[in-house]
C-alpha cells in the first residue's frame, strides 16, 4: 500500500479499470444519438460477422466430411440443440433458432471482448438487460398464450401444505420477477468484473519503471494477467452457456408450468 501511494506520488500508476467500457462514437466526437455508430456497433457487428462466417459461409460446402469451420458450426449446433431438447423438451426445439441466437451472440461477443483493446458489449447492463428482460417478457407471454391461466400454476405449489401455499406463492412470484434481473446482471457482472480485474493488474505492470518494488510487482502482475485471462476465456464460455441454459429452463417453465 505504501508502494502504491508512493507510486501515485511519483505519478506513474493510473488506475482506470472502467475506461475500457466507455461507449465512444466511431467517427468524430459528437454526441451519442441512438443511431450513432459507436464502438458498440463495431464490436456487435464483428460478432455478427464471425457468426455469419462460421455458420452461414462455413456450412456452405455441405460436405459429408466436414472442414474445420464446418465441424465447428456443427458442434455448436449439436451442443445447443441437445441443450434445448434436454431442458425444454421436444416442443422447445421450435425455439431453437432463438436460443441459438442468444448463445452465439453472447459467446462471440464475450470472446471478441477478450482481444486486447477491444470493447465488450456483453459487459454493459443495457445490453444484457435487453437480452434478459426481452427473453423474460417473451417467455411470460408465451406461457400465457400456450397455457392460459394454467400458467399461474407455476406459482401455486399443489403438493405443499395448504397453509404454506400462499406464502410459497408470494416467494415464487418474487423469485420469478427476480429472474431477469439476475439473468442479465450475472452476465454483465461476470464479464465486467473479469475485465476490470485484468485492467487493475495491468495498471500494476509498469511499476518496474517507477520504483524498486516493481522488480517483484511487475512479474507477479503479468503472471496474474495471464492467469486471469485464461480464467476469463473459460468464463466467457461458461457465462454464455449459463445464460443459454437458464433461458432454456425459463422456456421449459413457460411450456410446461406443471413441471
Amino acid at each position: 500500500m505504501a508502494g502504491e501511494a508512493q507510486a501515485h506520488g511519483e505519478g506513474g500508476l493510473a488506475f482506470h479499470p472502467l475506461d475500457q467500457f466507455k461507449v465512444t462514437p466511431l467517427f468524430g466526437d459528437g454526441p451519442i444519438e441512438w443511431y450513432t455508430p459507436t464502438n458498440v456497433t463495431l464490436w456487435m457487428a464483428l460478432a455478427a460477422i464471425v457468426i455469419i462466417l462460421v455458420f452461414a459461409v462455413g456450412s456452405k460446402g455441405r460436405a459429408l466430411i466436414p472442414s474445420r469451420v464446418q465441424s465447428l458450426g456443427e458442434m455448436a449446433y449439436g451442443f445447443v440443440y441437445k441443450m434445448v431438447e434436454d431442458v425444454a423438451g421436444h416442443d422447445g426445439a421450435k425455439f431453437f433458432p432463438l436460443i441459438m441466437t442468444l448463445f452465439l451472440f453472447i459467446l462471440s461477443a464475450n470472446m471478441l471482448g477478450l482481444l486486447p483493446g477491444s470493447f465488450t458489449p456483453t459487459s454493459h447492463i443495457a445490453v444484457t438487460a435487453i437480452l434478459g428482460f426481452g427473453f423474460f417478457i417473451f417467455v411470460t407471454v408465451l406461457g400465457f398464450v400456450k397455457n392460459g391461466a394454467h400458467f399461474l400454476g407455476l406459482f401455486w405449489m399443489s403438493d405443499a401444505p395448504l397453509i404454506l401455499r400462499p406464502i410459497i406463492a408470494v416467494i415464487e412470484v418474487i423469485s420469478y420477477f427476480v429472474r431477469p434481473v439476475s439473468h442479465s446482471i450475472r452476465l454483465a457482472g461476470n464479464i465486467m468484473a473479469g475485465h476490470a480485474v485484468m485492467k487493475v493488474f495491468a495498471a500494476f505492470a509498469p511499476m518496474i519503471l517507477i520504483s524498486a518494488i516493481g522488480v517483484v510487482v511487475t512479474p507477479v502482475s503479468i503472471l496474474a494477467i495471464t492467469a486471469i485471462y485464461a480464467l476469463e476465456v473459460l468464463v466467457a464460455f461458461i457465462q454464455a452457456y449459463v445464460f443459454t441454459i437458464l433461458a432454456c429452463v425459463y422456456l421449459k417453465d413457460a411450456l410446461h408450468p406443471g413441471h
Binding site: L18, F21, T38, I51, M100, T101
Partner: peptide, 27 residues
Amino acid sequence: MPQLDFSTFPNQIFWLLVTLLVIYFVL
C-alpha cells in the same frame, strides 16, 4: 460507471436489436 451512463442506452439497445435481428435471420 460507463455502464450507468444512461445517455448511451438508446444507442446500445438500438444496435443490439439490429445485431440480434441480423443474427436471428441469418441463423
